[in-house]
């Protein structure tokens, strides 16, 4: 990737130093705004107040993050599995693709917020509804990427398979699916950033805090109505960390699947 190679040319000190510097600058600006404006903590908490709130609320935040992770993982897994299968169906034939793809677009274009009441009615409140919402949000990028991947096999390889009289199934499973893996994983990576957001949104729209603890979306309600704004920021921080964990997990999966053969990973074996 081009951006990565640019980063590589920077001395390591700058690679680490620049974000730290911009971070410090941002925090300084934050304190400055707070000091000049005279805003109270419940309007603009300082980073320290947010960290203090995070510490004070850490049991609640961790339990909520666990709750959200379950919803996010459920929706993500469902999207990954159904996305894979859907793409195979779409990749098999041009007419299936022509017949179904527009409807997938319709599904993608429909705002989930409009579907929420119906999802609540059909899937039920709490986890089933949250997983459905997360699935809806993270499904499409996987399908779009994977389908594109299945159609992007090297034409020379396809010609080779056809010359050897390989069946359509063989062509699909032995050639197209493996060569579509980088696309699939790229789709998963997008989905991984969307899944925690989807789950929090789901909790905010469809959660019921069953089992004694709600997820991060529930805490948004709770802290908001109780005007615990520093804790609300701490919730944002926690959500952000959860998002990074999801992306890190998929990046690791990406490395696991691709590092042995794909060009995007440089090998040190020569």
């Amino acid at each position: 990737m081009e951006r990565l190679s640019v980063m590589k040319k920077l001395p390591p000190l700058l690679v680490w130093g620049l974000p730290v510097a911009s971070g410090v600058l941002f925090v300084a600006l934050w304190y400055g705004v707070r000091a000049v404006s005279g805003l109270q903590s419940w309007i603009l908490p300082t980073p320290l107040e947010i960290l203090q709130a995070a510490w004070r609320e850490h049991t609640r935040l961790l339990a909520a993050a666990g709750h959200t992770a379950v919803g996010a993982l459920g929706g993500f897994t469902l999207a990954a599995a159904l996305g894979f299968v859907t793409s195979l169906v779409l990749g098999v034939s041009r007419s299936l693709r022509a017949g179904l793809y527009p409807w997938l677009l319709v599904l993608q274009m429909t705002p989930v917020i409009v579907l929420t009441p119906v999802i609540m009615l059909w899937a039920g409140p709490g986890l089933p509804g949250i997983i459905t919402i997360t699935w809806l949000i993270s499904y499409f990028p996987i399908v779009a990427n994977m389908t594109q991947g299945l159609l992007s096999s090297d034409m020379n390889h396809v010609a080779l398979f056809r010359m050897a009289n390989a069946s359509r199934l063989q062509e699909m499973l032995l050639l197209r699916v493996p060569s579509a893996m980088p696309y699939y994983l790229a789709g998963l990576r997008i989905a991984a950033t969307l899944a925690p957001i989807g789950a929090i949104f789901g909790e905010y729209m469809a959660g019921n805090a069953s089992g004694g603890t709600g997820g991060l979306g529930f805490l948004v309600y709770s802290y908001n109505t109780q005007i615990k704004i520093p804790a609300l920021f701490a919730t944002a921080l926690t959500s952000c960390l959860l998002g990074f964990m999801f992306v890190a997990a998929v990046s690791w999966l990406n490395w696991l699947v691709l590092h042995k053969w794909h060009d995007s990973f440089e090998r040190n074996d020569h």
Partner: peptide, 18 residues
């Protein structure tokens, strides 16, 4: 006692037997 929440759809839930 089933907890509710946003969009709890209390009446529909009872009407459909949930």
């Amino acid at each position: 006692i089933l907890p509710g929440g946003p969009n709890a759809q209390v009446m529909s839930s009872v009407a459909v037997g949930r």
